[in-house]
Design a protein around this nucleic acid. Structure first.
Lengths: 223, 223
DNA sequence: TCCTAAATATGAGATATCTCATATTATTGT
DNA sequence: ACAATAATATGAGATATCTCATATTTAGGA
């Protein structure tokens, strides 16, 4: 982890101003942190000292269960907060946050800013919106996971993450995210190839029948 | 649905004051609504005109999927909000809310109060806390449902909802809530009886081995 | 460059869970 | 009090998904 100082910090503060999220001057308190690919930004179970706001990069939220299984709860991207649970709730089991790519965040120290943030209408309104979306998404994912087989959820995931016609997510990550075994994921991917929806090209998959996948994914919708 | 007027309304306003949740005078705008057991407070897909705050009673949040399956997303109890998604988000697929028992709510009209509420620090802070808890719970339920068989989740549910030593939830409701088929629910309940954790008494079940169920439920924890 | 750990692949057998069919009680409205 | 509807119950067969064993390939570190 690297903390940007002086000019570099200043450059980020200017280029990605988040002043509009607050009605008090936040700039002076902001730290700018850079995390390397794969680096753990927050260790599971360790309360952070900052509220984070992502400027560049992507990260993943993980939790480990008692039976050893790991769940990838969600992805975090630009303009997302994390650490907000710890800001609001004195008791909370902290999830692990791992950078997927090089990630730059604003880190807002609780120590100096908690009280101010909790008194700030503009910020609280943004936060409430962010949380309402998050909560809605989790509820949707929850009920979908109980109501539909992997086939549908994977189709949606492929379409969401594909780069043009190419799908190339790591199987291991996808298993944790969709909550299925590695074996089963490969079964369903093989089915998609059999049916001609996908074509395997080395380690990647090319989407051949966008429509068919879309049909499978669309069934999840309406929420 | 019945709207309390004059004295009855006044009595509720005094007995269950929620003035402390707001920093502006809210009382004059509050309606007091009573819904009968089984009544739909909000129809799925129909945006409500109020933010609701539950005073007495219990309700359920439902969503219907395209394949006809119904999910019981969560239970709502005293001191919970609902309609807050529609307050915050102009675009949102409204879930259905059904009263389980006779339910009395304060209904805060968006028309008069939206702007005020979205400017109110005290309220926004409460709402953000409420949403953060809700989001955390959904995330936990989501990952648990993907990581553990019904056995564990049912054990937890039985302990949470049992009335003393007696478990008597309706199977139909539990299926929707835990996202499993009726058939499978009965299988696992039968297993619990075989193992001596539960004993069937007419339509109810008596908890015989609290410890064993607790062991199964505890495996979910740590979040 | 080589070694090791991670990621990919595939088979075989188990089990968790689902669908459907069919009875038998409760509950509710009239 | 009766009919209709909802809830409970159980069997049988299907399928979605898991576990484990084992190879092969890829990628990162000494």
């Amino acid at each position: 982890m690297e903390i940007y100082k002086t000019e570099k910090r200043q450059r980020y503060l200017e280029e990605y101003s988040i002043g509009y999220l607050f009605s008090f001057p936040i700039e002076e308190f902001l730290e700018v942190h850079e995390y390397k690919r794969e680096e753990w930004i927050i260790q599971e179970g360790m309360r952070p000292d900052f509220l984070f706001y992502v400027i560049e990069g992507k990260a993943k939220i993980y939790v480990t269960h008692q039976n050893g299984k790991v769940s990838l709860i969600n992805f975090i991207k630009e303009k997302d907060f994390f650490g907000e649970m710890e800001l609001l709730n004195p008791i909370y089991y902290t999830k692990g946050i791992q950078a997927t790519t090089k990630t730059v965040c604003f880190a807002i120290p609780f120590h100096f800013c908690r009280a101010k943030m909790l008194e700030d209408t503009a910020f609280l309104r943004e936060l409430a919106k962010f949380l309402s979306v998050k909560s809605t998404q989790m509820a949707a994912k929850y009920t979908q996971s109980l109501s539909f087989p992997l086939e549908n959820r994977l189709a949606e995931f492929i379409l969401q993450t594909a780069d043009g016609e190419i799908y190339k997510e790591k199987h291991v990550t996808v298993c944790d995210f969709l909550g299925v075994s590695y074996r089963h994921l490969l079964y369903v991917l093989a089915q998609f190839c059999d049916k001609g929806y996908l074509q395997k090209e080395g380690r990647h998959y090319r989407i051949l029948q966008h429509n068919e996948l879309d049909g499978l994914a669309r069934v999840l919708m309406n929420e």
